[in-house]
Structure formats: C-alpha cells, structure tokens
Amino acid sequence: MLVQAIRSLLFYLLYLGQTAVLAILVGLDAKLRGRTGFGWAVARYWAACNLFLLRWVVGIRSDVKGMENIPDGPCIIAAKHMSDWDIFAILPHTRRPAFIAKKELMDIPFFGWAARVFDTIRIDRSLGGEAIPAMTEEARAALARGCRIVIFPEGTRKAALAPPDYRFGTARLYAELGVPVVPVALDSGLYWGRRSLVLWPGTARARFLPPIAPGLPAEAFHAALAAAIEGETGRLILGAYERGLASPIPPEMRERLEALRAQLSAENTTTS
C-alpha cells in the first residue's frame, strides 16, 4: 500500500505539472495565433504521455478495442466516465474530437483558452433544460467542421458499479443531429477510483461498441444506450474481478460483484 501510494503521488505530480504547463503553452498560442496545428499536436502528446506515465509509474496498462465500430463520417461518441484515463484512451481514436464540458472549466484562464482550440462544447448546467438548445447548436457547428462529438452521458465520473444515472442530453443530441451514436464501455474506475488518491496496477479496458443508428424515438434510444454501455461495462468489471484485482475490495463492492456475477450467469443461461 505505501509503495503504491508513493507511486501514485509521483504520477499526480508529473500529470498535473505537465498538464498545467501544456495548458499555458496552448492557451497562450491560442490567444496569439488562434487555432493552429500546434494545439492538436500537444493534445496527442498529452494523451500518449499520460498513458505512458500510468503504465510505467503506477502500473496501469491500457487495452482499447472496437475502433472499427466508429463510423467514418460524423457521429457522437458516448462513453462511460470513471476517471481521467477515459479521456486519454478515447482521444487518439476520435480524429478531431469536440468534447462536451462544463462551462466552469472553460472559464479557467489558459485551460479554457486551450479547450476552445480543441472545439470543446460548453454546457451551462445552471440553466437546466435551457442549456440543451445552445449545446445542440454548438454540436451541430462542430460536426460541420468535421468533428466527432464526445460526451459522457452521466455528466460526471462514476464509481465502478455505482447505480447508473444517464442524463437525457445525449438523447436530445441524437434526435436533433441525426447521426450515429457509438457507446463506449470501460472499467477504469477499478484502477483509478473517483475519489481515491491511490492508483492501483492492472489493465484498464475500453470497448467501442456497435453504433446506434439514427431514427429511434428518443426514449428508445435512451434505454438502448444505457443498456449497451452498462451491459458491457458490467462484463468488463466482472472479468477484471475474476482475473484478480490489486486494489482492496470493500464488502459492499464485493456484494455488488457477486450480484453482477449471478445476473450475468442468469442472462447467459436464458440466452443459451
């Protein structure tokens, strides 16, 4: 535990330190020259460097599959969100991403300037449902520029096996934009917990799933998206549990894992 805590502290120092420096560089460049290739080159470096640090400093490997499910044309990528690893792992496969982010992040000096270079779409949660039309128009403009929209449908990071809470904003985008939505399942929270200062070694996995074609009623899409992401996320988490986890497993978490094992076993029996 002590050794892993020291490794985690070293990672955080390197990760946060370089993120601050790179945000300042990209932010200043954006202020002086506007959108340039420099910003995207830095973003690719940032993602690759952080995956490298996770692998060699704290022992978290990365396994990302299913990229063949991403359409060539415009689409929305809707991913489970458990840790910052999700951003590093997804970003290299998005071509030109437009992440949907809280407005508060965009107001941070340097960081907000840098985020605008990367086509980030703002959402002002203080406006409630009124924020959706503005977000939709920004997303439509981003698609016209050749971006792929990246959204976390639950709106925030969730702990592994926490009860799902899918917001309706993704369904609104799906209905308004008329493009396929690619669900993404992952299990990174087993290694980089939502409120844990200690990162644990293992292999974090992400899976791009078959796209949901446009045309479904919003309610049907909402249910299909949650079912796809939660179903595959559960299978990833259970697989990691059965292979063995380095992190301590609290009794409540173990109960949830055993309940998940029973649920998936029953589903397999029903379909066989």
Rank of each mutant, 00 (worst) to 15 (best):
I229W: 04
A228Q: 06
T269C: 05
F110R: 10
T120C: 12
I6C: 13
P250F: 12
F99W: 12
G37Q: 09
A259F: 10
T270G: 05
A78Q: 09
E267T: 00
I90P: 03
E154I: 06
A30D: 03
L91D: 12
Y45Q: 04
E68H: 10
R61C: 09
R96Y: 05
Y174P: 13
A206N: 02
R44I: 03
L22R: 06
P217W: 14
L186S: 03
F99L: 02
G37T: 03
P164Q: 13
R33T: 11
V57N: 05
A141N: 02
L28D: 11
C147L: 13
A78R: 07
T94V: 04
F168D: 11
P109E: 09
V184A: 14
W200Y: 04
G128I: 01
W46C: 02
A131S: 14
W85K: 08
H81N: 03
I87T: 11
D187A: 13
T270D: 09
A262H: 02
K80H: 12
H93W: 05
A218K: 08
R254V: 09
L91S: 14
P153Y: 08
A185W: 11
A228C: 00
G202Y: 13
A204N: 04
L173N: 02
P201G: 06
C49E: 10
W113K: 01
A144L: 07
W46D: 03
A134P: 00
L238K: 01
A5L: 07
I108T: 15
D29P: 00
N268G: 09
I151N: 00
D86T: 06
V42H: 03
A259E: 15
P97W: 13
L209D: 06
A218W: 00
V181M: 05
P248E: 00
L161K: 07
A213P: 13
G215R: 05
F52H: 11
R55L: 09
